[in-house]
Nucleic acid binder design. Sequence first.
DNA 1: GTCTATAGCTTGATAGAC
DNA 2: GTCTATCAAGCTATAGAC
Lengths: 188, 188
Amino acid sequence: MPQSKVDDNQLLDKLTDVFRLHGYEGASLSTLSEATGLQRASLYHRFPGGKEEMAQAVLSRADDWFVSHVLAPLSEAGEPAKRVKQMAQRLDKFYNSGKFSCLLDSLSLSDTTNAIQQHVERSFTAWLEAMTGVASEAGASTAVARRRAADALVQIQGSLVFSRVTGDGRPFKRVLTSLPELLTGNDE
Amino acid sequence: MPQSKVDDNQLLDKLTDVFRLHGYEGASLSTLSEATGLQRASLYHRFPGGKEEMAQAVLSRADDWFVSHVLAPLSEAGEPAKRVKQMAQRLDKFYNSGKFSCLLDSLSLSDTTNAIQQHVERSFTAWLEAMTGVASEAGASTAVARRRAADALVQIQGSLVFSRVTGDGRPFKRVLTSLPELLTGNDE
DNA sequence: GTCTATAGCTTGATAGAC
DNA sequence: GTCTATCAAGCTATAGAC
């Protein structure tokens, strides 16, 4: 029963918003403090490592959530194409129909620390491998499965950039719809 | 015959590198000074508006270069698919085979000014319209042409993000190869 | 046109009261 | 666990000599 003003989940939600929106350098302690309602010193009490630890915590929690809520359907039973369709539905929620940028994009500029860049790359690769797996199960050779997974990730990331710049989320929706065929070679 | 240490083109080259790599907030005056070999005060002499004017100048010159060197083939004579192939070759040089990030991505986070965000959106839209034009000439309806252009831009931007995060430039190369068919519905 | 020097503010981070 | 107060270092920007 903590005497916290905000519990860890609420706190990380707010921090995530700021990093997603402003990137690493753009997310100042003032901004983070204002968004969370906690003073700078209180943030340091929760995250002794300061801003970098906040970013790492945000990334870690996003990883966990992503694996258990978005990628989970990929390793369940059933038709590969149906599993991908499930993932696409989760992606639509996760990225709020394209209105949310991807943390991995926002935190991948060279204004971050090496540790964060490596974290981003690992998360990216994990996603890639999960999609490679389902493409393989759908009958693709290893090489083809890898290529399909990369193409899928390219289209997801690209449509999120498109949406951020233009405000038009239709390409993101289109990408989600095409994912099952793109990954498995099968419409359903 | 200027007594400048660096001419405008060299100067903007260096500034461009920094903004592309570090984003807006990540590009500090110290970094920009170091990259260009000019002291802070000298940069202010060239760009009285400071950092924002530098970013605007970088964007404007990138626009000019992009229109005249990359998009130019799209409005020349010849088969639409061949013109797209030309653009793809120029893109490969412009983005150094995917090793360069896109300025429009790097400068599109919310750590920039409104003016810069609007500039980025205009540049993005101009590119979109140029590709919409060639898709139309290839016989697509307005709606289809717009969709194809958006999909092309999605794949280009996505493959550049992919390349930045993983260091693997193959998806970018693949996207360039597929552009003629993607935009015109024709392999060549 | 470039420089050194500096102003004034914001940054990330810490100390210590409650 | 949160706060106020503070620090040194960084930031953007300016003044003025050469």
